[in-house]
Structures are given as structure tokens and as C-alpha cells.
Amino acid sequence: MDKNNTPEVAPTFRVQWEDVQNCYVVLYPEGMVKLSSSAGQIMKRVNGETTITEIIADLKETFSSNELEDDVIKFLEVAYDNGWLRNKK
């Protein structure tokens, strides 16, 4: 994965916070996936302006942890695979 890429949420999908579910969710035609709290923290930072490197840096700072990079990359791979994300050109 090229960490210089800038991910954005693909047009078919929408990410939003749900009070009742108490988590971030991904919405798409006739369906919904609930995100774990760490996945939610990652998706929340995807805005079509921030690069993967910057997202990781922000997460490291927010959660004062240096060991989360691998997990973030792993989750982003899944998110790209599912078509939730695409690279902003």
C-alpha cells in the first residue's frame, strides 16, 4: 500500500456516527456494517484530503501509541477491498 495516497469514501458508501448503535457505521445500498471503535477512528479521518501517512501520524498522537501502524494498514486494505475507499486523484 502506498502511504502517500489520499483515500476518500467511494460514492456508493457513506460513513457516519450512529448514537443508537454507539459506533461508526458504513452505509451502502440496502445495507450497513458496524465498525469497531478502532476502525471508526480510522474511517473518521478519511476525508479525501489527508494522506495515509498523515492519518497514521494523527492516530499515533491521539492514542499515544507507536505500534498501531500495522493494524491501520491492515484495516485500510480491507476497506479498499470492500470498495468503501478509493484514492483521491
Binding site: 450512529e18 448514537d19 443508537v20 448503535q21 457505521v25 452505509l27 440496502e30 445495507g31 450497513m32
Partner: peptide
């Protein structure tokens, strides 16, 4: 308000 997210 009850939590519905999908509307058809």
C-alpha cells in the same frame, strides 16, 4: 430517532 438507518 429509534435508530433506523436505511430507508426504502
Amino acid at each position: 430517532k429509534m435508530g433506523a438507518t436505511q430507508l426504502g
